[in-house]
Amino acid sequence: MPEPSIATNNAPAASVAPKRPRTGRRDGRSAILMMGPNVGMFSLFVVIPIVAGIYLSFTTWNIDNSPKWVGLANYTKMFNDPIVGVAVGNTVKFMLFGVIPTVLIALGLAMLINVRFRFVGVVRSLYLIPAAMSFAASAIVWRYIFLDGPGYGVVNWVISQFGVPPPNWLVSTTYALPALDVIAIWLSLPVATILYLAALQRIPASVIEAATLDGAGLIRRVRYIIWPMVRPMTILVAIVALLSFTNGSFDLVNILTPTGGTNYATTTLIFYIYQQAFAYGLYGYAAALAVLQIVLIGGALVALRVFYLLGNRRS
């Protein structure tokens, strides 16, 4: 305790006591009381699980018994499990083909709606409204759009108008993952666009005007002014998109391809973890896979940071 409890037990003393100099003020006791529930819950359901997860990864556990220590067995199994490589590959593909288009399209959309006219609020709402939808609800709407069922869905109808036989999106080993990416991009764009719009509005109009007067076309303006100036935001957009795609890589896969796709085509690491634990009861093994997942997310964040710093040095 940073404060002697005697002083605070004399309730009226607080206002009577001589004023302490501001720099010496300590709010330890009230701070602990006020922060306690927050930190307590956070520790119980966030900090402890992170530690417990590492412990569980060295055990076998099947819910009914207590976890049994098995040393590195789960990790040995992980490195010899060919599906792990497939799942990591799918996850990386899903992230790259999802996050990069999200960043680029969102910047384009933000530039498009960074304009003032009478009904701009209504038009912007059209861009932002998918943010209200869950992965679950959009999964089903998009399933009908990519439809493989009785009639054709819109996408396949359009493709068939060109005389090309349309793919069976969700069953295909080639097109299933890209189809899920399309849905996740659509759902991630609103937040990404909002973030870029805010960044664009911090660029002084005079800078753009000067460049336009100097004869810089749209592409040169984007390349030399807008892109460098929104770069800090690009990192944030990429991080937020990365986390949203992490969610999507479970929700969409589990709802649209509940077996993990033909030949594991859509088995992402998160989905594989869930499957190992809740379908096969291999909780210890799943915990080891989750450690790998956290390492991968950490790696992705470090990579983003390195890209950012390298970019800074160049410019």
Binding site: F42, L44, F45, V46, I48, P49, I50, V51, A52, G53, L56, W61, I239, L243, T246, N247, F250, I270, I273, Y274, A277, Y283, A286, A287, A290, Q293, I294, I297, G298, L301
Partner: peptide, 17 residues
């Protein structure tokens, strides 16, 4: 913690629960 969604600590969170 913002970078460790509940998704990645699913099994141990379930364990605690």
């Amino acid at each position: 913690s913002l970078f460790i969604p509940i998704l990645t600590t699913l099994i141990p969170t379930f364990f605690v629960t």
